[in-house]
Amino acid sequence: MFEARLINSVTFKKVLDAIKDLLNEASFDCSEAGIQLQAMDNSHVSLVSLALRSDGFDKYRCDRNLTMGMNLASMSKIFRCSSNDDTVTIKAQDDADTVTFMFESKKQEKISDYEMKLMNLDQEHLGIPDTDFSCVIRMPAGEFARIVRDLSQFGESIVISCTKEGVKFSTSGDIGSANVKLAQTSSFEKEEEAVIIEMQEPVTLTFACQYLNSFTKATPLANQVQLSMSDNVPLVVEYQIPDLGHLRYYLAPKIEE
């Protein structure tokens, strides 16, 4: 028996919005520790890694490890039927071929349930080694989304250069070029407004705008985003989901021919 209850359906809606650009379907691996998902996009250039800890749920029970393959568009349809502040309970029997989502309104006057067929997905998992990154940048998630959106108008790729002084986002295309520099904040009123850089070595890497834009669909989940970079390894873009877990995206850098 698997049962996970979350007080506000909106959190799950935001997670779905953050991954359905990149993934059509995905396997949710459920264990006593929580729910995990690791999946690459169709082109195998980026990877989504989601972890929701069991202690972040209002109620969580997982008697046996279970992998639920789900179509994310179907799941989105179901979650669109819930109000943001509905409590959601996800339930499945052991070895079941369906999963049930139950939504309860705050005053309990409306209870709805939706049963969805599970899929058998043959998903490849990648072993991702722990890396000491040369640069770790923390910045407001909204600012990162804004910069990626702005620069995407001018080119297909964004060059991210990080030094101790700050981080620079650059692009160029048919109409010209664009640069956005962010300095590390020396003082800030609110922690979520800070730009903080931890640098061992300066790094410059180039990434496709298309994927960076998809990652920023996670912006509503967190105030801050963390970018981790080292030469010749994939970028990690991480959003912490408050009190519940994290959503990480990996993106292979572009390489000079």
Partner: peptide
């Protein structure tokens, strides 16, 4: 010219 490698150029399949 820049080339877009896949993640398998960096990570091994489990």
């Amino acid at each position: 010219v820049q080339n877009q490698p896949t993640l398998m150029n960096f990570f091994k399949k489990k």
